[in-house]
């Protein structure tokens, strides 16, 4: 990450925040919805795209963040409730990540699926904290001593937090910890052989990822003023996974692009549907669109919109492009390489 990238991102954030502040409620809603999803998608991408730990419990972690922020906010914690949401998310994530110290790949993924269902159930039965199936009503976020009521203000807050989260995660990717994550994704055996403490590094990834998932949940609770168990079921995990697949696995910018795409797609289909005669048809199409989209991306562009953008850019800039951005290895090829790490191919 160069200084130039940071400046561009900052300028972009300021521009979108300004638009969000001046726009009408609907546009402000779209902006904060995208920003909040982006934070969640980045946190998920850290685990799946960077560290290679496939998890389906993202919805549960966002839920933990939402209920934590809701309860702390209602108790008068103000902005600290968002911090609390992050910390509780990190804690829950570390708990869900514990099996990853022994399980790999699909086996770990299944354990997170189980965790997702356990948490969904807990949200329903922990009456005192979650108010069960009827849902928890959340008071507005109190910032600098006054409640934040308008959607426009939430748009600005969400964009600022998205920018800070991106800054943190992209810096993290450039430390030894971030690089170690990439090696673990390719091969745990190689990582171990290189002297990387695999268990500790994975735990760090779970903690950081959980923190931002919790933050995402906290923002979600304050903006929708409500947290109910149905919102944090497996469907949310699927949505978040769709975002990082569409946007680009292992890319923070891709997470944001994916979040924009996946959040705005239903809106676009809705608009399209208003032009059509049958409303039933449209709602069916909406359900299908996600599934079709994920399949298409996995088949045609496994590294997401980001790599599509890189390819177009290197084609436009022609000979000026360096080899680094032009080469993209499809994920399916890679999976073949890292299923067979160096140690297995050894001849003694």
């Amino acid at each position: 990450m160069t200084t130039r990238t940071v400046l561009i991102a900052a300028a972009l954030a300021v521009a979108v925040a300004l638009v969000g502040y001046e726009a009408n409620r609907f546009w402000a809603y779209l902006i904060y919805a995208v920003a909040i999803s982006s934070i969640g998608a980045m946190s998920l991408n850290l685990l799946i795209g960077f560290c290679g730990q496939i998890t389906f419990a993202q919805g549960a972690l966002i839920g933990v963040g939402a209920y934590t922020a809701g309860n702390l906010g209602n108790a008068g914690w103000g902005a600290l409730s968002l911090l609390g949401a992050g910390l509780c998310g990190a804690l829950a994530s570390a708990l869900i990540g514990l099996p990853a110290l022994r399980l790999r790949g699909l086996y770990f993924a299944i354990s997170t699926l189980a965790a997702q269902f356990i948490f969904s159930y807990l949200f329903k039965i922990l009456q005192p904290l979650t108010n069960g199936v009827s849902g928890l009503v959340v008071k507005p976020l109190v910032l600098f001593g006054r409640p934040v009521a308008s959607d426009q203000e939430y748009a600005v807050i969400s964009i600022v937090l998205l920018f800070l989260s991106w800054l943190f995660l992209s810096r993290l990717a450039q430390t030894d910890v971030g690089r170690a994550l990439l090696v673990i994704r390719e091969s745990e055996l190689v990582a171990r052989g290189m002297g990387i403490d695999v268990s500790r590094t994975k735990m760090k990834a779970f903690l950081v990822s959980g923190f931002f998932a919790g933050l995402c949940g906290g923002l979600l609770a304050f903006t929708s003023r409500f947290a109910n168990p149905e919102a944090f079921e497996i469907g949310l995990s699927v949505d978040q996974t769709a975002m990082i697949i569409v946007g680009g696995l292992g890319s923070l910018a891709g997470s944001v692009i994916g979040a924009v795409f996946v959040t705005l797609l239903p809106e676009a289909i809705q608009r399209l549907g208003e032009l059509m005669p049958s409303a039933d048809l449209v709602s069916a199409f909406r359900e299908m669109a996600f599934g079709v989209l994920i399949i298409l991306f996995l088949l045609l562009e496994p590294r997401g919109l980001v790599s599509l953008g890189q390819r177009l850019r290197s084609r436009w800039s022609g000979s000026k492009s360096n080899a680094g951005t032009a080469v993209t290895i499809p994920l399916r090829d890679r999976s073949r390489t890292f299923a067979m790490p160096a140690f297995n191919r050894r001849k003694v």
Partner: peptide, 26 residues
């Protein structure tokens, strides 16, 4: 005590400097 490997895996997204820095991290 450090070692090299018989067959090298390609760590796709990492650059040469990234890998060497990881070595130095130890």
């Amino acid at each position: 005590v450090a070692r090299t490997f018989q067959s090298v895996v390609s760590l796709h997204d990492l650059t040469v400097l990234d890998v060497v820095k990881l070595g130095a991290a130890a």
